[in-house]
Simulated assay, not measured.
Amino acid sequence: MTRTSLRVAMIGHAFMGNAHSQAWRTAPRFFDLPLRPEMAVLVGRDADRAAEAADRLGWAESSADWRAVIARDDVDLVDICTPGDTHAEIAIAALRAGKHVLCEKPLANTVAEAEQMTAVADEARAHGVRAMVGFTYRRVPAIGLARRLVEEGRIGEVRHVRAQYLQDWIADPEAPLSWRLDKAKAGSGALGDIGAHVIDLTQYITGDRIAEVSGRLETFVKERPYATSHSGLSGTASTERGPVTVDDAASFLATFGSGAMGVFEATRFATGRKNAIRIEINGSLGSLAFDFEDMNVLEYFDARDDAEVNGFRRILATEPGHPYVAAWWPPGHGLGYEHGFTHQVVDLVEAIAAGADPAPSFADGLQVQRVLAAVETSSHTRTWQEIPQS
Rank of each mutant, 00 (worst) to 15 (best):
V129S: 02
A47L: 15
H87P: 14
A71E: 08
I70A: 14
L42D: 01
R72Y: 05
D76Q: 06
L42H: 01
I155R: 04
E115T: 14
P83W: 03
G134C: 15
L42P: 05
A108C: 11
P83I: 11
V140H: 04
A47P: 14
I143N: 03
C103K: 01
T86V: 11
L95R: 03
A108I: 13
P106M: 11
V129G: 06
V75Y: 01
A108F: 07
S63K: 06
N109C: 15
E115F: 08
E113C: 10
C81S: 15
A94Q: 03
G58R: 05
V101S: 00
T86W: 13
E113D: 11
E151Q: 15
E152S: 13
I155C: 05
E157C: 10
L57K: 06
D46T: 04
R96D: 10
D85S: 12
R56G: 06
E123G: 13
A53G: 10
S62I: 05
V75I: 15
R130D: 02
D55E: 14
A51Q: 11
V78T: 07
A40W: 01
W59Q: 06
V75M: 04
E104M: 10
A54C: 10
V78L: 09
H100S: 05
I70E: 03
R147C: 07
E152L: 14
E151N: 14
V150F: 01
A126H: 12
D85R: 08
V140L: 13
L107I: 15
D46C: 07
D73C: 03
E123H: 05
T118D: 02
N109Q: 08
I70Y: 06
C81N: 14
D65W: 08
W59K: 09
A40H: 04
D122Q: 13
R56Y: 00
G134K: 11
A119H: 00
V133E: 01
R45S: 13
H100P: 04
A88P: 07
S62K: 05
V140R: 03
V41L: 02
T86N: 04
A142P: 01
R96S: 07
D74K: 07
A126M: 08
W66D: 14
V120H: 00
D122S: 13
R56C: 08
Q116A: 12
I70P: 13
R96W: 01
A64T: 07
C81Q: 13
I90N: 05
A88L: 02
E61W: 00
A51T: 13
R147V: 00
R49S: 12
G134N: 13
E89R: 05
P141L: 04
R56S: 15
V140Q: 04
A108N: 07
A121F: 02
G98R: 00
L57S: 09
D46W: 05
L145K: 06
L149R: 14
R96N: 10
E151Y: 00
I80N: 05
A47R: 12
V75R: 02
R154F: 01
A91R: 00
I92G: 00
A97E: 03
G144D: 05
R45W: 08
A47T: 12
R130E: 09
L42V: 10
H87C: 14
G144W: 07
